[in-house]
Nucleic acid binder design. Structure first.
Lengths: 182, 182
DNA sequence: GCTCACATGTAATCCGTTACATGATTCT
DNA sequence: AGAATCATGTAACGGATTACATGTGAGC
């Protein structure tokens, strides 16, 4: 049995999607890009090695499931995998931070070192970007709502909505700042 | 002269703080922890090597400035350093993303795989954490406002306020979700 | 005398992205 | 026939954290 310390957040994302019924590494990536990506990013370069590690640790099972001549691996949680996921979710402990990372906000912070006309342009650019992000959210939300019959779908939707609200507040703050300046 | 590609975001944070008048690597770290940390984190392990690189590249000057027997290096921007910073800020181009990363939001997303009573507890924990974050913000804001006479201080304060507004929206979203559940 | 803030740095390691490499299937 | 999507993986690189290592000065 693995110790908690040997599993990373990435591991739990993979386990989490398998719990919800995903199968292949590809599937996990697609789903993550439409949901968890908004508060934690993962890439193929993490997913495939991670699936192998989880398999070695006995937390997931693999089954070859070719679609025609195309290779496909169907992963599923073992009881130990389910338990590891549950333990992580239920575990009370160090919350870990909530980190925001935005290069444009950084530019805005140091705007005094730039040319005078840059501030307005930068604020414009940031608003466009936020609008695009929110449009993406809206699109994914709509799709998610389409198959909202699945267990837990409503809850996951509410979590996505937190992301929507955060990004909306960001956009509104940018608009207020733009107004203040002009 | 350096190409833009050879400088990372970390480089520009360092240059940015030197533009605003910071001196030592230690100073930069202290200031960053009270401001830019909310939208881009940096550590000593990056700052000191970075200062050396910038020096080699001719973008910063160093002066030994011991305080008593205690070693201290005073860094300042060269004209090339000022120019590199200005070029980065004024440059229009790939905005780069705005990434949020929050392990608790992830747990909330996968909450179905946990025990029933975990949801409420987790939401509690998240609200406490956001309240703590906002309190930190408020403290730094107050300090920053104290020496608000410096050029650009008002602008930097407004950028910090965007962070406050984002985190406030997050907290409010959590409260609404708590209310919906109970 | 002790503790805290000041101050500088390196090395190991981890985490994660990007680019590369490959190929089948399905839809138009 | 061609494009888009499905599907799996690896290798190189870069970015960043953490732990380690060291020592002074100021205030209580």
């Amino acid at each position: 049995m693995l110790k908690a310390a040997e599993l990373s957040t990435t591991s739990y994302i993979v386990l989490g999607f398998l719990h919800a019924g995903s199968r292949s590494g590809y599937d996990i990536k697609q789903l993550a890009d439409r949901s968890t990506r908004f508060f934690w990013q993962i890439s193929y370069g993490q997913i495939y090695p991670e699936l192998k590690r989880l398999q070695d640790a006995g937390l997931v099972d693999v089954e070859a499931d070719p679609r025609g001549g195309r290779a496909r691996h169907q992963y599923s949680l073992t009881p130990a995998g389910s338990e590891a996921l549950r333990a992580w979710i239920d575990e009370v402990g160090d919350p870990g931070g909530c980190a925001l990372r935005d290069g444009l906000l950084l530019k805005l912070f140091f705007i005094d070192a730039g040319s005078p006309q840059t501030e307005g342009r930068l604020l414009e650019q940031m608003q466009r970007r936020q609008e695009a992000t929110l449009a993406e959210f809206a699109a994914f939300r709509a799709k998610a709502q389409a198959h909202a019959s699945k267990p837990g779908a409503a809850r996951r939707l509410r979590v996505l909505d937190i992301g929507v609200q955060i990004h909306t507040a960001y956009l509104e703050a940018l608009r207020r700042l733009s107004d203040d300046i002009s």
